[in-house]
């Protein structure tokens, strides 16, 4: 993102936020608020053997890539 675009985006967001905050009567009619809806990647336990199993199942692999014809695996 260039500096000009960053500046444009910041300006657009500021002006939109100011305008939208004035909307009286805007009500939440859909969805449900969940406190913990965002995944926190830091607390997930990972299966250390998963990578090994993936590569041993793959027909062909090189370094960190599985090499396969599209839609055949």
């Amino acid at each position: 993102m260039t500096d000009k675009i960053k500046k444009d985006v910041a300006s657009i967001m500021a002006s939109f936020m100011k305008a939208l905050s004035k909307a009286e009567g805007a009500k939440e009619k859909f969805g449900s608020e969940r406190e913990n809806s965002m995944r926190d990647p830091g607390t997930q336990d990972t299966d250390k053997s998963f990578r090994q199993r993936m590569f041993s199942n793959a027909p062909k692999h090189r370094d960190s890539f599985i090499i396969m014809e599209k839609k055949h695996w």
Partner: peptide, 11 residues
């Protein structure tokens, strides 16, 4: 932004 915009859209 997005959710607020959807609410205004409803209005």
């Amino acid at each position: 932004f997005y959710r607020k915009a959807l609410q205004v859209r409803d209005l």
